[in-house]
């Protein structure tokens, strides 16, 4: 309990016997305090990262967890020696903060596989389909030497699209019976998919949905002027029976091969963004903290309100004041 963030990070990145437990504890630490992620990025700077981070998103009940389970099975079949990391996010109760995390039930056939690390996380008030600090959790699973990390979002509506900010590739999962082709023209979820998977393809309406989705993709490609070949592919799966999974995983592997360098750069940019945000937060906290202890802020606000000073002038004055009074750390 009392291990520091750094001790835990070192234990995860080492090959020690307790690295799995250390990783699990580190993930809890990040979930409790997402603001520690930028520091963690530094501790894990030289640790391995996953070859592919795959986001899986879609409406509640389309079969995201079952599909994740089937993708795990297919990857394990192909690479018996490699590790897989899975992060499954479920909603927290907005009233009590509690949660029932049940995505794992669909993946229990992997529960005693030492090469599969599955972690359930609660959304804890975040609205974008994920949870705070998830970037750090992906890095922890990478440091555990996961070849691939899969992030399954909460069941989303149309605009919970945070997953595109943390995944290399996003698979949007749909199922027959969720609305007509006008739904497919709407903005949001359909714009972030690198591939589309129509699950429960053994049910009526799957082929029609595929046709509608493909024609929407073609329309989008024409409007955006992208080449037809670059438009996302639509796959049909029946995840409960593993049907269609070979094609899906082939497509993931192809993308991982072709776009690796591009992802590498994008991941560095995201780390830089996280650190930039942490820096701004910290600067703001210290700036406001210095002002509040000084007790001058109300007086300054009044002067601006009365038109005696411009905002710029007050900021300059305050910066000078803070610079001379900040504690040296």
């Amino acid at each position: 309990m009392t291990d520091s963030l750094k001790q835990l990070a070192v234990a995860v990145a080492s090959n020690s016997a307790d690295k799995t437990r250390a990783a699990a504890k580190l993930i809890s630490r990040i979930a409790d305090r997402p603001e520690t992620v930028p520091q963690l990025l530094a501790y894990l700077h030289d640790a391995p990262q996953p070859r592919l981070t795959l986001g899986i998103t879609g409406a509640p009940g389309v079969g995201k967890s079952t599909l994740t389970d089937a993708i795990i099975t297919e990857f394990r079949r192909r690479y018996p020696d490699r590790l897989l990391g899975i992060i499954a996010v479920d909603p927290s109760s907005p009233t009590t903060g509690g949660a029932i995390l049940g995505d794992r039930i669909r993946m229990m056939r992997h529960a005693s596989d030492p090469n599969v690390f599955i972690r359930s996380l609660a959304s804890r008030g975040r609205l974008g389909g994920l949870t705070g600090g998830i970037m750090g959790t992906i890095r922890v699973l990478g440091a555990l030497r996961s070849d691939i990390v899969i992030v399954e979002t909460v069941g989303v509506g149309q605009t919970e699209v945070d997953v595109q900010n943390i995944a290399d590739l996003v698979a949007v999962v749909l199922a027959p019976g969720f609305g007509d082709d006008i739904q497919l023209l709407k903005a949001g979820l359909l714009e972030i998919g690198d591939l589309f998977i129509i699950n429960k393809a053994d049910r009526p309406g799957a082929q029609e949905l595929q046709a509608a989705l493909e024609s929407t993709m073609t329309l989008n490609a024409e409007i955006n002027g992208t080449k037809r070949d670059d438009k996302p592919t639509v796959f049909l799966t029946t995840a409960t029976d593993g049907v269609g999974l070979v094609d899906v995983v082939d497509a993931l592997e192809r993308q991982a091969e072709v776009r690796r360098n591009q992802w590498h750069q994008r991941r560095s940019e995201r780390s830089m963004d996280a650190i930039r945000r942490a820096l701004i937060d910290s600067a703001q906290r210290r700036f406001m903290g210095a002002l509040e202890t000084n007790g001058t802020i109300t007086e300054h606000l009044h002067r601006v309100l009365r038109g005696e000073r411009s905002i710029d002038a007050v900021v300059q004055e305050l910066l000078n004041h803070v610079a001379s009074s900040l504690p040296k750390t």
Binding site: T20, R21, A24, K25, I27, S28, S92, T96, G97, G98, A99, I100, L101, G102, R104, I105, M108, A111, S112, P114, F117, I118, R119, S120, A122
Partner: peptide, 25 residues
């Protein structure tokens, strides 16, 4: 009561339960 509950469902082996408990911290 505000807890996060990892629900594993029925018919689990002791090994599955312990592995899950450790990964889920």
């Amino acid at each position: 009561a505000g807890f996060e509950v990892i629900y594993t469902g029925i018919r689990r082996s002791p090994e599955e339960i312990v592995t899950t408990a450790i990964q889920e911290d």
